[in-house]
Design a protein around this nucleic acid. Structure first.
Lengths: 217, 217, 217, 217
DNA sequence: CATGAATGAGGCTTCATTCAT
DNA sequence: TATGAATGAAGCCTCATTCAT
């Protein structure tokens, strides 16, 4: 019911104070919920904790979301648009392989920074209860990434890479696996995702052509 | 309490009928629980269903296991020994790369056949609640597989493969990812794990040397 | 608190526009509430729906009524005066039995037309919570009707009808029962209340004396 | 689910103690629920109170009934069989009108004694939420009573009574109305249902033929 | 050993009522 | 005066766990 976002991010400037506060609260709830879901998964997440973290009463949650599931849905949808932001007009002088690597690198860094990689795990693992969400997730996040890989493999003209057009997963799987690894192995030093990505890309695609050094220290 | 396995598989021959029956019931419970956990995950698993599937009363479960968590633990431990069975004395005439591929292929096929790949997902995803189990899982299943990969990468002498000694995950990640994929995408045709493995190995290691054709139709 | 009607229907003519608007809104709320109570009963009635139907905000309801119960009270009181409207100066030429029948017929038709028969059921059935209201209802609606019956039975001089002076309910009960019946049996053709009344009166009082044919087609 | 009564009243004599106790508890719960529903109606009935009255924990209710609604259903069904007990082989020497009156008298007395008349009111008034139950009630209780009336009206051969074959409600409505009356008018002396019935029957059917004096004081 | 009825804490959700704007 | 977002008590229901038989 209240699920259709009541006010888009780019609301008219004269949007009432009322609406702005509502939107802020909505955002606070989603943020609290995201933290809760990441920390406990869906089944073990407690709406009482979400409400407490968001600084509202339990009942208030239901002014914004119809159910726990709808809240989870909103967290995911809130996360989605950010994941695969516009391509940012690739610099023309850059060689395609470099551009490709930059794109992937940015996507991975973004997911990690926002904690949405953890959300992905939750969707993937508790998907039995959310077939709908799972599909959304795949279509909205994974498919575009796969498309990126496919396009590159196809346009590169390298025969060795042909399998990637059929199984783009092969290039991305380590990111997923590493995310899991880091979630699990809290006792060991976490895997460095960017470095792992780089290593994997080099292993599969070959060493990078002269490209700008990564910014990440 | 009852967690120490009351009777190892190789019980003394004079073990009474009593013990054998007890052991059989214990096994039945574990089997039922495994099916339940695979079907629903930990949080959504219902002990009532486990008892029903095992053909015992709910209370009986507690004669064998202290809690739901202990039962999950037992399921995992029950699955562990099978996963990484003895190397089956590699045929000496076979070239090392071929032997390596055969080993991996067998391990993957075994996990898939037994449904234990699904269990892995559960551990990985609900690990927030089971840090202990997660570590067991990693040490007992993943580490040996990683060792296999490391050994091969090191002994192969191929410089390109050096990263695999640092990140053996890179070679195995697609199996995990594909398992997830298949769990999620029940609407699409499932990925063929053996084929995916083969493709990945070829992509990373190069085409297989003359080796016996896979037995799998 | 606000229960003392803020402005009687016959307010002084110089009553400000303000008051008139207030009164209109009050009436709108009562009308909406009546519809809601008839449709759902007291317990299942939702003030949110009442507010929506009345075109006001939920909080506004509390500017006019102290509580859900007070609103119900107001609905009932609002309905009462209409139910037993002035006798409309019985035509002198008409024989008493005919006049009596006309009166009853009018009262029944009025209740049915206004939907207040349904309200009666609600009072009667949920009276456990509203002993006060129940009494009002009886005194304001039923007693006058009973009086009518008693008067007739007494003045008719027919010995057979003497019991009606003690139990005037006997003559009116079928109307109540039929209202219930119609509320329940939505699947079957509804009972025709006027006809049922006529039949009952004939059964108990005997056939009508030459009277004007009923206007109802 | 558990709704089909797990053990009929005439269980085999060797029925285990377990079953007998279960059945007793089931009966206790139904009795407690009946009291609660009669006292508060369906919507305001509290399962916590039912459990307390029955001397069980709240959760226990759900071992016997799937939901509040199912419990209500069971209360009703539990009441049904008693309501219209076997005709008890009418004494052949008794004139038909007398037999008819006896039957009605017994049915009314039975309903009143068991408190099931109050239940009827609840069904009738809260039927909006329970169309299914309402139909059961009508078919199981009212229709048989109507049949009784119709049969009598038809077989009596009295022309005046012909309307009763079309509207058997007319003969029974006062009982319903009086039940309501008594529920409402807790401050006034309650109507004497048997006497009211007698009066009504006399009013409509004429004075009773020489019959055994009613047993009720 | 086995049973399965019983428990009760705790989860999600609803909604009459309040109050800052 | 009017709004509608916010509250929080309270309801129904679930299910891991216990215990009398």
């Amino acid at each position: 019911m209240q699920d259709a976002a009541p006010a888009p991010a780019d609301a008219p400037p004269e949007a009432g104070l009322r609406d702005r506060k509502k939107e802020a609260k909505r955002a606070a709830i989603i943020a609290a919920a995201q933290a809760e879901f990441i920390a406990h998964g869906f089944a073990e997440a407690r709406l009482a904790r979400v409400a407490a973290r968001a600084g509202v009463a339990k009942g208030t949650l239901y002014l914004y979301f119809d159910s726990k599931e709808a809240l989870f849905d909103a967290v995911l949808r809130g996360a989605l648009p950010l994941i695969f932001a516009p391509p940012e007009a690739a610099d023309p002088g850059i060689p395609p392989q470099t551009a490709f690597r930059l794109r992937l690198r940015a996507a991975i860094a973004d997911m990690q920074a926002s904690g949405r990689d953890k959300l992905a795990l939750i969707v993937l693992s508790e998907s039995a209860q959310f077939p709908g969400l799972a599909r959304i997730y795949l279509e909205t996040i994974l498919e575009p990434l796969f498309g990126l890989v496919r396009d590159y493999a196809r346009s590169s003209g390298v025969a060795r890479l042909e399998p990637l057009t059929r199984y783009p997963q092969l290039l991305l799987a380590p990111m997923l696996a590493a995310t899991m690894w880091n979630r699990l192995m809290t006792e060991r030093p976490p895997l460095d995702l960017p470095e792992l990505l780089e290593t994997h890309l080099t292993l599969v695609l070959g060493p990078p052509e002269g490209e700008p050094a990564p910014l990440t220290g």
